[in-house]
Design a protein around this nucleic acid. Structure first.
Lengths: 211, 211
DNA sequence: GTGAACCTACCTACTGGATGGTAGCCACGC
DNA sequence: GCGTGGCTACCATCCAGTAGGTAGGTTCAC
C-alpha cells in the first residue's frame, strides 16, 4: 500500500468504530478528525461529504468482511465450525465495547443514509446471506446439517437471529446472551446425531476481528 | 384522559414515529414541533430535555406494548396464535414505512442514550422475553410447542430473530422477508404433528398497531 | 543541477444552518 | 390570582461544508 493512503485508511478505520458505536447520525467529522489527529477540513479533503465517507466505509467494510468470509470458507473445517467462526466475528465486535456490526447499525439508520450507502448495506446483507446459504447447502449435502426449505431462507433466519442477538447483548452489556442465541440457532440446523459423539456447538475464537 | 394531556400525548406519538424512523440521534425537537404544530420551546415546556422526552417515550411505549401483550395473552387462542399475533405487531410497524420497533432502534442507539432511557430499553427487552417465555412454557405444557432448554432462552432466540428480521426487511424494503423468518422460527418450536391437520403457521392481522 | 509547475495533504478561517436548551411574556381557564 | 401551555427571542455550541493558503515532494524543461 502506498504511504499516501495511510491517512485515508486511518480515517476509515476510525469512522468504522465510531459508526459501530454511535450510528451514522451520531458521529461527526469533528469526532473523526480528533481521533485521527488532523483537522476536520482535512477529513473533507479525503472524503468531501459525509455520504462519500459513508459509502467508502461500506465499500471497504464489505470488501474486508468478504475476504474474511472467503478465508473461513476456504479453511479446513466442516459447516458447523464455519458457522461458529462466523458468529465469532460478531462476538468479537461486542467484546469491543459492545459495538454493533456495520450492517445492523446502518440498517437501523437506513432512513438517514444517502442512497449509495443504502445500496451497499443491502449488498452486504446479500453477501452474508449468500455465504451462509452456501455453507448451509454444503453442510446439508454432507449430512452434517439438517433443515427444511431453501438454504437461502435458512441463512436469512440465522443472520436475523445473530443481528437481533447483537441488539439484545448490546443493551444488556452481556456477550453471553449473543453466544447463547448463536448456539441455539446453530444447534437447530444440526443434523440429528448419526455420529453420537459429536460435541455440543460451542463458540471459540476462530477468526480474527474485521480489519 | 384530561384534555391537558392531549398535547403531551401528541408529542409522544410524533416522537415515537420519528425515533422509529430516524433513531434517537436523528430526530430533533424541531422535527417534533413541526409535526405537532407548536413551537420548539413548547415541546421543551412539556419535556425539558431530550433525555426526558426519550424516557417518557419509552415508559409510555413499554406500558402500551405491555397492555397489548396482556390482551394477546388473555385472548382465546393457543400459543402459536399468540406468537403470530406477536409477530404481527412488528410486521405492522414495517408496513408503516419500514419503521423499526422501539427497542431495536434504541438498542442500536444505545451508546447515545441517557442512562434512564437505557434502563427502560433493557426493561422492555426483559418484558418481551418474559412474555414470550410464558407463552412458550404454556405451549409446551399443552404439547403444542416443542423446544429444548428453558423457555427464557428460547424466547430470546425468537425475539432476536424477529429483531434481526426487521433490520433485514427494513434494508430491503420487503416485509415478506420478515414474515418468512417469523414463520420459520415459529415452525421450529412447533411440536411435531400429533394432530396431523394442523395448518402451516401463517401471519394474519391479529392485533392492532401499537398505540 | 536548477527552477518552475503541478499535485497532494495538510492547515486556518470562515459560512449558514441546525441543535438542545433558556428566559420572559401572554392568554386562557378555573 | 394562579397554573398551564403556548409564544417570541435568544443563547452557546455544534454541524457539514467551503475557500484560500502553505509545505513538501515529484516531474519536466532548460
Amino acid at each position: 500500500m502506498p504511504a499516501q493512503d495511510e491517512t485515508r485508511d486511518r480515517i476509515l478505520e476510525v469512522t468504522r468504530r465510531l459508526v459501530q458505536s454511535k450510528g451514522f447520525s451520531g458521529f461527526s467529522y469533528a469526532d473523526v478528525a480528533a481521533e485521527v489527529g488532523i483537522r476536520k477540513a482535512s477529513v473533507h479533503h479525503h472524503f468531501p461529504t459525509k455520504g462519500d465517507l459513508g459509502e467508502a466505509l461500506m465499500v471497504r467494510y464489505r470488501r474486508d468482511f468478504g475476504e474474511i468470509l472467503a478465508r473461513i470458507r476456504a479453511s479446513k473445517g466442516d459447516a458447523r465450525s464455519r458457522l461458529r467462526a462466523y458468529a465469532v466475528l460478531f462476538a468479537d465486535l461486542l467484546r469491543d465495547d459492545y459495538r454493533l456490526c456495520m450492517c445492523g447499525m446502518l440498517a437501523a439508520d437506513f432512513d438517514v443514509l444517502p442512497p449509495s450507502v443504502r445500496g451497499e448495506v443491502r449488498g452486504f446483507f446479500d453477501d452474508n446471506e449468500e455465504w451462509l446459504a452456501d455453507v448451509l447447502a454444503s453442510g446439508r449435502k454432507q449430512q452434517e446439517l439438517s433443515f427444511v426449505g431453501s438454504p437461502r431462507e435458512q441463512a436469512r433466519v440465522l443472520l436475523s437471529a445473530l443481528e437481533g442477538a447483537m441488539l439484545v447483548a448490546r443493551s444488556h452489556g452481556d456477550v453471553s446472551l449473543f453466544e447463547g442465541v448463536a448456539q441455539r440457532v446453530f444447534h437447530a440446523v444440526t443434523a440429528p446425531p448419526r455420529r453420537a459423539v459429536r460435541a455440543p456447538v460451542s463458540l471459540r475464537r476462530a477468526s480474527r476481528r474485521v480489519a
